[in-house]
Structure formats: structure tokens, C-alpha cells
């Protein structure tokens, strides 16, 4: 039988106070994952004496996109992300990822921070943010530290967040100059579907060539990572030098290099290859290259 005491914090200070004073505290945000665990009487509740509801903490909410830097509060819901005109204009792939998560009811409650901290292998918030090179601000009573998002997850459902820390916000550099992006997701149905595969591509281009690029997949590897070989292949290439199909093959090889041959590989290899090929093709097309 699950038993815990429910605490409600109304300020960040209060959150940090409780995290310092009490042991075995589990933070509760939107609850769309944790409440499922509760229903299933997940054994993890054996290590939880307190559930700390932070949904009322205003400091953890909000989207700020400056010319150089951007930040998203950890408690920002997916609904807020996808309805934000700023996100839509400047970082559409974040909005696309948010809109692909759950249902309207889920998006109204579920937070981007919760998605990251829960760290499911198929979590859809990772790949767009990793493509941005995002860092997480993890705060405890003593201060804050920054962790690169791609280093945040150790293995599925396990992150480097410490017991006395809370994820405060996600910070990143805004893409500069001419840039293009895309987000693709394959699920088993058209809505409320866990990703079989997802892919974010974000590229800064200049003079018909790739200046910077990040190709990041979700659900392809146990922890989401940028495809370094693909990025290497594409970086500094002129559009004419790029073969999208080859980029796809490199990504597929890289994925299998990380995961090894798994039960799902016969499907994921060709499908990922195709997603990457399409993302690169779309990029070239959007950038006006008709080669």
C-alpha cells in the first residue's frame, strides 16, 4: 500500500526549503506520469515519504525568447508551448514536438520539466532541446548548476538530478542567421501515441552551405543523443555536396552502433534512415536549393 504525505509549495524558496529539510521527497508537477505510477502502485513509492506539489510555483513558469538566449520554465505546459506565438515563429520544432505529446487534456497539465525529469526513452521533449544545445538549470538551496541536456539522462528514467534539487528552467542559445528546422514523429496511431521514433533537425545555413547542424533522434537510443557522425557529415558541406540518403544511412549506422542489433532494429534502421533523409531533403528545399 502506497502511503505518503502531500505537501504544497507556493514559491521556489519553499520548494528548496522542503527539499533541504526533508528526505524521500518526490516532486509532483503536472502529474500525468506520476499519477499513473500511483494508480499502478509503483514500487518507487516505497522510497517516497512526501509528495511535493509544485504546480502553484509561479517562478517556474514562462517562456522568454531573447535575441541571443532563450529560456523555458520547467513548469511550462505543453499546451502553453504549442500556443505560444513566439515559439511558433522562432522555434516551431518545439511547438511541433509539444503538440505531438498526449492529448489536449494531457498537454494542459503535463510540463516540459516533468517530461525531462521523468526521462522516458521515448520522451518527446528531448530531441528539440538537445538540438538547441540546451542546458538545464538545476537549483538547490545553495545555488544553481547547469547541466547540458544531453548529459542529463544516465539511463531511461534515471537522471543526474539530485534529491535536494529542482529543475528550474531550460536555457539555450537562440539559433542565429538563416536557420531551418523540422520535427517528425512516428507513432502507432495519429494521436495520443508514444513515439516509435522521432527526429529533430536544426541547421544554420549560410551561402548555400551548412554552417551548424544538429540531427537528434528520440526513441532511437536509450538516452536521446545527437547523431555526431551525421552532424559531422553535414557540417560545412555545401548543399550540392549533400546526399540526403547517405545522411540517413550514416544515422542508421550510428543508431545501431549505440544500441546494437535489437529486436526493433529491423524496423528502426530503415525508418530512421528515411526520417533523416527526409529531414535533410526538406532542409535543402526550404533553403531554396533545387539541385
Amino acid at each position: 500500500m502506497v502511503e505518503y504525505q502531500l505537501l504544497r509549495a507556493h514559491s521556489l524558496e519553499e520548494v528548496l526549503e522542503i527539499l533541504t529539510e526533508k528526505k524521500k521527497v518526490q516532486i509532483l508537477a503536472g502529474g500525468t506520469d506520476l499519477m499513473v505510477d500511483l494508480h499502478q502502485q509503483d514500487p518507487k513509492f516505497e522510497n517516497i515519504d512526501y509528495l511535493l506539489d509544485i504546480t502553484d510555483v509561479a517562478e517556474l513558469k514562462g517562456i522568454k525568447l531573447g535575441p541571443e538566449e532563450g529560456e523555458i520554465g520547467a513548469l511550462t505546459t505543453h499546451a502553453e508551448l504549442l500556443s505560444s506565438p513566439e515559439i511558433k515563429e522562432k522555434l516551431p520544432f518545439i511547438g511541433a514536438a509539444a503538440s505531438s505529446i498526449g492529448s489536449t487534456q494531457i498537454r494542459n497539465r503535463a510540463t516540459i520539466g516533468g517530461n525531462l525529469v521523468n526521462a522516458a526513452a521515448c520522451a518527446d521533449s528531448f530531441s528539440p532541446l538537445i538540438a538547441l544545445g540546451a542546458e538545464l538549470v538545476l537549483r538547490n538551496k545553495g545555488g544553481a548548476r547547469r547541466v547540458l541536456l544531453e548529459d542529463f539522462v544516465e539511463w531511461p528514467n534515471q537522471t543526474v538530478l539530485k534529491d535536494n534539487e529542482v529543475l528550474e528552467k531550460i536555457v539555450f542559445k537562440m539559433p542565429q542567421g538563416e536557420y531551418h528546422s523540422s520535427y517528425q514523429k512516428i507513432g502507432r496511431r495519429n494521436a495520443v501515441s508514444i513515439s516509435r521514433l522521432s527526429l529533430t533537425l536544426l541547421a544554420e545555413v549560410e551561402n548555400e552551405a551548412i554552417k551548424n547542424i544538429q540531427v537528434v533522434s528520440g526513441a532511437a537510443t536509450p538516452a536521446p543523443v545527437p547523431f555526431r557522425e551525421v552532424n559531422k557529415y553535414l557540417t560545412a558541406k555545401t548543399f550540392a555536396e549533400i546526399d540526403p540518403a547517405e545522411a540517413g544511412e550514416i544515422a542508421a549506422d550510428e543508431m545501431v552502433g549505440i544500441t546494437g542489433e535489437r529486436w526493433s532494429t529491423p524496423y528502426k534502421r530503415p525508418a530512421l534512415s528515411k526520417l533523416v533523409e527526409r529531414a535533410v531533403k526538406d532542409l535543402l528545399e526550404e533553403a531554396g536549393y533545387n539541385g
Binding site: 502531500l6 506539489d53 497539465r109
Partner: peptide, 15 residues
């Protein structure tokens, strides 16, 4: 004003 799944919300959260 928002549709939510009432099975995923603790009542104390919506005080």
C-alpha cells in the same frame, strides 16, 4: 477553463 483528466489530478492540487 481547461479540460483535464480528473484521474490524473489530486484534489489538493486544485485547491
Amino acid at each position: 477553463d481547461q479540460a483535464v483528466n480528473s484521474c490524473l489530478v489530486l484534489t489538493a492540487q486544485v485547491d
